[in-house]
Each structure stands twice: as C-alpha cells, then as structure tokens.
Amino acid sequence: MSAETQGGFQSIAAVDHALAVLKTLATSAEPLGVNELARRIGLHKSTVSRLLRTLENHHFIQRDATHGRISLGLGVVALAGPMLGAMDVIAIGRPVLERIANTTGETVSLALWNGKEAVMVEQVLGTRTVVHYTWRGKAVPAHSTAVGKIFLSFLPDSEVRPILTAPLERFTEFTIVDPDKMAAEIARIRQTGYALNVEENELESCGVASAAYDFNGKVATVLNIAIPKYRFDGEQQLRLAEIVVEGARELSGKLGYGNRAR
C-alpha cells in the first residue's frame, strides 16, 4: 500500500483514489463507464477497475445491467443515513421546541442516543430570567437524566439489565443508584410515557422528557423540558409532563409516525 505526503501528513494513495471515484460519481449527471471514470480521475483503467470491485463489494457503487455503467450505490446512503436522519429530526423538531419554549418559558431540547448516553443535539432557550442551558453535542448520563431514562425505557430488558447491575454513578444525593429502584423507575416510564429528573444529575436542575417516533415506529429523538428546581413543584411536574408528551406526539406526526403503509 503506497502513501504520499500531503499537507504534512501521510496520505494513503488507495484511499485517496477510492474517494476520488466516489466524488466523481457524486458530481456526474449520469452513470459513467470505466474508461470515462478513469479519464476524469487521471488513473489507469486497471487501477480504477480494482477500486470499483472493492467499492462494489461494499455496495458503495453499482453497475447497470445493460451497459455496466457505474453510479453511487446504496452503501453510501446507509453510511450517511444516521447523520442525515439527525439533521432531519433537528430541522423538523425545532418549530415544536420553539412553540413549547414560548408557551412554558422554559428551555426545550432534543436528544439522540449514542448507544451509551443521551446526546443533546438542539435546544431553544426559555424566555424566563433564569433558564437552563446546555451545549449541543453534550453527552449526559442515561440513569440520572430524564432524556437518558427515556432511552433506557425503550431498550430490551436484556440490554437494560447489564446497565442497571453495573455500578451506577452518584451525581447528587438524589441520583437513583439502586438497581431495583431504577428498574421500577423504568417500568413507570414505560407506563406513563414520560420521565422526570428531579435534581438527579445536577442540584437545582430538573427536567421532564418524552419520546418522539419516526416513520418506522422507532424512537427518533427525545424531547426534554429543563426547569430549575424552585419552579418544579408537583403541580408543575404534571403540567409539563402533559406538554412534553403532547409535544412529542406532535413531533412524531411530523416525522411520519402513524402514516406507515399497512
């Protein structure tokens, strides 16, 4: 495998050439033959043919059955799909966040699941003097946040059990670290459709969250309302729970949930 220096670092030629193939196909208005592809990239036909065989094995390119012309394959879509899906969720969800933030005066956010933690990907700040703020891309623990507990509640029991039996980190005196209590909390969330965080991750910081579903009936994102503890009494908990569940239902509809062909 050859390498060449570009911009002060070692560039692997085969990777550069494979990317050149994909970029050329992406900018072409029509499928290309091997000869034309090789000419545009400036490589020998035999080199391009070898690259194409590898890319085809991974479904990054496809050939039409009649002339063997080449275009991008579904493997590229699968690779970019998670990122594009996240971008769609953010774009579609922001008006819902804005409406809830204006209605409640509290900060509203969206979170995605990275397989271990909830990641905050969008937020709209509340209109009150004191509001909660978090940065986009921040990962928050699963067991001590409302958004994280929602994601946990949708995992199969076989995946939840190892998480609960591992030592749960205590962040405040209110963090649930007992596995049985957390299992009961998850059962309650599955029944009610929303999760609460009452100073479990940070003192004076609370939240209420609910899941929004995509076209396939899977959790697309979790919607969360953050609120300081002094404004989060029992009555307000119930009010915001109703609002966040309704907001998640609205977002689910915008994401196509319930419209899947039977």
Rank of each mutant, 00 (worst) to 15 (best):
S2W: 00
S2D: 14
A3M: 08
Q6C: 09
S11L: 11
S11P: 04
A14T: 11
V15S: 11
A18G: 06
V21L: 07
K23E: 13
T24G: 04
T27N: 10
T27A: 14
L37S: 08
A38H: 02
R39T: 10
R40Y: 03
I41G: 07
G42Q: 08
S46A: 14
T47V: 15
R50F: 09
L55A: 03
L55V: 05
E56L: 03
N57V: 09
H59A: 11
H59Q: 15
H67F: 14
G68R: 07
G68D: 07
I70K: 04
S71Q: 12
S71F: 05
G75V: 03
L79Q: 08
P82V: 13
A86H: 12
A86K: 14
M87K: 02
V89E: 03
V89Q: 01
I90Q: 01
I90K: 03
I90M: 03
I92A: 01
V96I: 04
V96W: 00
L97G: 05
E98S: 12
G105P: 04
V108L: 06
A111E: 01
L112T: 15
W113Q: 05
W113E: 02
N114S: 12
G115I: 08
G115V: 09
A118R: 01
L125R: 08
T127W: 02
V130N: 11
R136A: 11
G137P: 05
G137W: 07
P141A: 09
S144H: 06
K149R: 12
K149F: 01
F151C: 06
S153W: 00
L155R: 05
V160H: 02
P162N: 05
I163R: 10
E169N: 05
E169P: 09
F174N: 13
D180Q: 15
M182E: 12
M182W: 03
A183Y: 03
A183F: 04
A184R: 08
A187T: 14
I189H: 03
Q191Y: 11
G193P: 12
G193R: 00
A195Y: 00
N197A: 15
N197W: 04
E199N: 14
E202Q: 12
L203M: 11
S205Y: 11
S205V: 11
C206N: 10
V208R: 04
A211D: 01
A212I: 00
A212C: 09
D214R: 02
F215P: 00
N216D: 15
N216F: 10
N216G: 14
V219A: 07
V219D: 04
T221K: 00
V222Q: 05
I225C: 07
I227M: 07
K229E: 10
L238E: 15
L240S: 04
L240W: 02
A241W: 05
I243A: 12
I243F: 02
I243Q: 03
I243D: 01
E250V: 03
L251W: 00
L251G: 06
G253M: 00
Y257A: 01
Y257N: 08
